[in-house]
């Protein structure tokens, strides 16, 4: 019977172990078997508690809160799915959803494409080490500081960009970069891409430097030009790294907050909010915690669904290959 298996196994271990060894000693102690079985779980417990307390419990609490109306003063009132129903007719939520799509598409496309292009150029550059360090510097700056820097660049009247355009006689090209929707969202995407470019370049460089030379040399021998080698040999071999880069950019662009908050606070008139900013504003500025929680749940579900769909699609493609 199964219940006899463990004591029989312990006896077998003890019988097999040479006398005086640690295993023999351990197996013979009353709590030795229990400790040995529990040890792996004990090592994992602190992290499980951390994740449970700081992730799972708040997530469950947010889910509950999204079904209530709560202003932080009086106890929450259960209202069912009213918050979710109101979301779909809320123009602010619709604008924020659209802005989130712009962010996801913009960061993914711009950061990935630009990162790859720069990595390809740096891969054969003699000054690669220097340029890598320079290009990585923005990644070391906090999102809030990035927002302050780019606010000074994009400010209508005092910003460096408009001042430079006027200086070179291109005053007609000046724009209200941060107060004209959706231009304000695209301007902030530029700031975010500037910050995230460094790590993207590093990852692509790692990928490029691990590509074996043989397929490239074979293609060149067959008469392929540089673009054909890149398109049909290098790019496919870069796929594992590209999956990682796109995945990271996808998740980061869904949850962007600090750059937006420091540059526009989601304004003017809530025109540049993303779902993360709307969630914050509804909860902590308007004190509609239940409504804000419903936005948080929508954002979580969408991010999770997109990530799962993306990963499954990639792995399916890899299996086919």
């Amino acid at each position: 019977m199964a219940s006899d298996a463990k004591p029989r196994k312990a006896k077998a271990r003890k019988a097999a172990a040479p006398e005086g060894t640690e295993v023999a000693a351990e197996a013979s102690r009353p709590f030795g078997r229990l400790a040995a079985a529990a040890a792996p779980y004990l090592y994992v417990t602190p992290m499980v508690l951390l994740v449970g307390v700081f992730l799972l419990y708040p997530a469950a609490d947010t889910m509950w809160l999204s079904l209530t109306k709560w202003n932080g003063i009086y106890p929450p009132t259960f209202i069912g799915f009213d918050n979710y129903l109101n979301l779909w007719t809320d123009p602010v939520f619709i604008t924020a959803s659209l802005n989130t799509v712009y962010w996801v598409a913009g960061v993914m496309l711009l950061q990935t494409a630009l990162g790859l292009a720069l990595a390809v150029l740096l891969n054969t550059s003699p000054l690669a080490e220097l340029y890598k360090r320079i290009l990585y510097l923005p990644a070391a700056i906090s999102g809030a500081a990035i927002g302050v820097i780019w606010y000074a660049i994009f400010n209508n009247q005092f910003g460096i960009l408009n001042a430079s355009l006027r200086f070179v006689g291109l005053g007609a090209l000046t724009q209200a970069w941060l107060t004209t929707p959706p231009l304000n969202t695209f301007s902030m995407i530029v700031a975010a891409v500037w910050q995230g470019l460094g790590p993207t370049i590093i990852l692509f460089l790692v990928g490029l430097q691990t590509i074996p030379r043989d397929p490239i040399e074979a293609a060149q021998t067959d008469g392929a030009n540089a673009w054909q080698v890149f398109r049909y040999v290098t790019l496919p071999l870069l796929r594992p790294i590209t999956v990682v880069v796109v995945g990271i950019n996808l998740i980061n662009s869904f949850k962007v907050f600090d750059i937006i908050w420091t540059m526009t606070q989601g304004g003017p008139y809530r025109s540049s909010e993303t779902l993360a900013v709307t969630m914050f504003r509804d909860s902590f500025v308007s004190f509609e915690f239940g409504y804000g929680a419903s936005v948080a749940m929508v954002l979580t579900v969408v991010t999770f669904a997109v990530a799962v769909f993306y990963i499954r699609a990639i792995f399916r493609r890899l299996e086919v290959q």
Partner: peptide, 11 residues
């Protein structure tokens, strides 16, 4: 905003 939330929830 953080301040108002703190007072509202602890008041």
């Amino acid at each position: 905003s953080t301040y108002q939330a703190a007072i509202r929830t602890s008041g």
